[in-house]
Computed example of a mutant assay.
Amino acid sequence: MKYRTVLVWAVAILCFVVLMIVTPAIPQSEEYHDFADKREFFGIPNTLNVISNFPFLVIGLMGLVLCYYGNYFKLSLQGEIWGWTCFFIGVAAVSFGSAYYHLEPNDARLVWDRLPMTVAFTSLIAIFIIERIDERKGTMSIIPLLLVGIISILYWRFFDDLRPYGLVQFVPCIALPLMALLLPPMYTHSTYWLWAAAFYLLAKIEEAEDKPIYKLTHHIVSGHTLKHLFAAVVPVFLMLMLAKRTTETNRISLFRSWKISRVIIKANEIKVESRGYSSVPDEES
């Protein structure tokens, strides 16, 4: 088992080194800071992009309270408690970091926007490892994963290269839904992970279509403002999952359970059809 773990880490590091060698650096484009909605209300620059971060603060604080107040989420493993604590701290901190950035968008302030998001992303990876692979390894991975995220942001800031940060953000977007589908869960209500992933995907689409959405809505709301609101729904789904879930007695992956359900449905359809045919009397010749 230890040999396999070392081998996986070695392959991952080798792939990262090769990727860094064969691909060119990706600098931060200044156009990124050119958002569609620059309106100012009540003396607040870029008002809607600033205040639309407020839901992150509310949801993050609620998550922290429910993690500890009466153990509402029923977190039985120490690693889970640490992982979800880091996640909800990251969610709450997004409200401050993103609001600070949008008051005056530039590279220096963007660091404080991306840092709490990276904390939230890397915490979720550790949580998945705890729940679906190995509790001890997942708990031990929390701090290293957080450090990897922080280092990727520092690397971008000092070397103007987004490649490491892009991997830290991109890999969870692919890995977490796949793990939710293919790995047997420790708890029920795993479909909430997929709902959370779907809303995050919608948020990224709205971010990319910032100006077209602003134009389409007749300058009422921009895509980036909607991105904040849709991204805030992600931790809401995860809170619902934590509140509803129970220990999974029959650990089967979502993909396998859906496959079994399809087989059962088809078998029932065949039975119904066969009964329908058998009930029809034969015509006399």
Rank of each mutant, 00 (worst) to 15 (best):
R4H: 14
L7C: 14
V8W: 11
L14V: 12
V18C: 01
T23E: 07
P24A: 03
I26L: 12
Y32H: 09
D34W: 07
A36E: 04
D37S: 08
G43L: 08
I44M: 08
L48P: 01
L48S: 06
F56Y: 15
F56E: 02
G60E: 05
L61P: 05
N71G: 08
K74T: 05
Q78L: 11
G83A: 14
W84V: 03
W84M: 00
C86E: 03
F88W: 09
V91R: 00
A93P: 02
S95V: 04
S98G: 07
H102L: 05
E104Q: 10
N106E: 14
D107K: 11
V111P: 01
D113E: 08
R114A: 08
T118H: 01
T118W: 05
A120G: 11
S123Y: 03
S123D: 08
L124I: 11
A126N: 01
I130W: 02
I142Y: 01
P144G: 09
L146H: 05
L147M: 14
I151G: 04
I153S: 04
I153D: 02
F159R: 09
F159Q: 11
D160N: 14
P164I: 07
G166A: 13
Q169A: 14
A175C: 10
M179P: 00
L181G: 06
W193M: 04
E207K: 10
D210E: 02
K211S: 12
K215E: 15
L216G: 00
L216H: 10
H224D: 06
T225C: 12
L226M: 14
V236Y: 05
V236K: 02
R245I: 00
T246R: 14
E248L: 11
R251F: 05
I260Q: 12
V272L: 15
E273K: 13
G276L: 13
S285V: 12
